[in-house]
Design a protein around this nucleic acid. Structure first.
Lengths: 129, 129
DNA sequence: TAATAACTTTGTAATCAATACAATTTATAA
DNA sequence: TTATAAATTGTATTGATTACAAAGTTATTA
């Protein structure tokens, strides 16, 4: 499915800018920061504003199109893959890796309604070990 | 076990300041921010510096005495309970709740060595529902 | 089509959690 | 005591994120 179609399905108007940003995130599974997205797209979109990147990430995240990842860092990272999977942050090189995992059996108390579930680990990656 | 003993077991010299801060975190299971800890302790420790709170949280977290929680917020929260449990962030009231959970069966790739595992949910809590 | 309204994008300025750093204080060892 | 190491403090700075208002774009209605 195209990025534009996915955005539309979530009630988000698929402007050129939004599609470009979402496309980038779908094609680069490196869990980039807002700044990295901005830097990567700037050469081909000279009028792009960093605020727009932030606005777009916030919108897509709120609508469940993408996931916002924050693992003991000041800067948020973003992931276009919203299927269940875990994230592994290497505290040496700072990279974030995906890993397969099941959802655990969580005893969420009565009356609590979760919309997002996240599982992550911190440690050392293969290269840094 | 006393806070001083726990700190010592982790090779951290149990200064008065550190014990006071760690004590507070053990007694207040509200997942406070550094600022909240500082504000709470200031009246009884007028010379306490916010930098010291940050330094202490960083040290205790690095040594595995406490857990640092960051769930799509700019400010980190801290938890003296390091047993396996999940965190639930209510996006309405902003409070963080504990919930029981098992660790899922995670397929961490060969060569990756995790030291910390976290599970959290975002949603709406009982009071806000 | 033209006018209007609604939405999107942009740039600048402001916010604020966290850190750097050097000075001061406190504790330990010789 | 004196010297050395460690801990604490305050100030200044950093840097990610947001606020906000202006400018630009798209959709809607007459």
């Amino acid at each position: 499915m195209t990025s534009a179609e996915i955005l539309q399905q979530h009630g988000i108007r698929p402007s050129l800018t939004r599609v470009m940003i979402y496309d980038y995130l779908r094609e680069h599974r490196t869990h980039p920061t807002a700044d990295e997205i901005y830097t990567a797209l700037s050469p081909n979109a000279p009028t792009l504003s960093k605020t727009t990147v932030y606005n777009t990430m916030k919108l897509l995240s709120a609508e469940g199109v993408i996931k916002t990842i924050t693992i003991e860092e000041q800067q948020a990272r973003f992931d276009a893959c919203i299927d269940t999977h875990g994230h592994f942050l290497c505290k040496d090189c700072g990279k974030v890796f995906d890993f397969d995992t099941e959802l655990p059996s969580m005893k969420i108390p009565e009356g609590f309604s979760p919309t997002v579930t996240e599982i992550y680990c911190i440690g050392r990656c293969k290269s840094c070990n």
